[in-house]
Amino acid sequence: MSDEHAEAAGEPLPETRGAERSDEAESQRKLVCFDLGGRELAAPIEQVRETLELRPITPLFRMPPSVAGITNLRGEILAVLDVGVLLGFSPTRRDASARILVCEVEGRSAGLLVERLGPLRDVPSQALAPAPPTMPSEIAALLHGVVSLQTHPLPVLDVARLLDAPPLRPFVTERAARAPAQESP
């Protein structure tokens, strides 16, 4: 686990390493799928901590449009990001099916506002392809790649890069950074 986190933090392509370590891990990757702006996206399950129902989100002053606000998760102040705005979609609707996807990478955690949670998908590691060149570079920088499903292409977010993106950086909680550090030795 600690290896995974370390490699994920250090390597842009974690699936390669996973494949090296075990055949099973190499062959299958679990993706948490969700909808944003009417499209299906996915995030690697290693970068997701938990999922939440929509809960009251308190807006903050002078926030960029890609930040929805903050919320209290079991005593922890968690920033909720509107990734759709960041990805160029319209602001995410907050209806009954809206959920909050809590992600944590290298001690940094934040909540992603999604329109809807989809199923867990197991996909082969080889299925993850690099983002097509037609995609804008700032968008493609936020992706691991694209998995070609039979019906449609499924972009897979790289939550680590997303949390590192400049507009969001100040709002990402740092609490979780020590825990992997303590575990890593």
Partner: peptide
Amino acid sequence: SDQTTLLALNAAIEAAHAG
């Protein structure tokens, strides 16, 4: 059912984290 789905997803996430 929604909550159960959510819980199941969370459980799956936890399981994935457990390696």
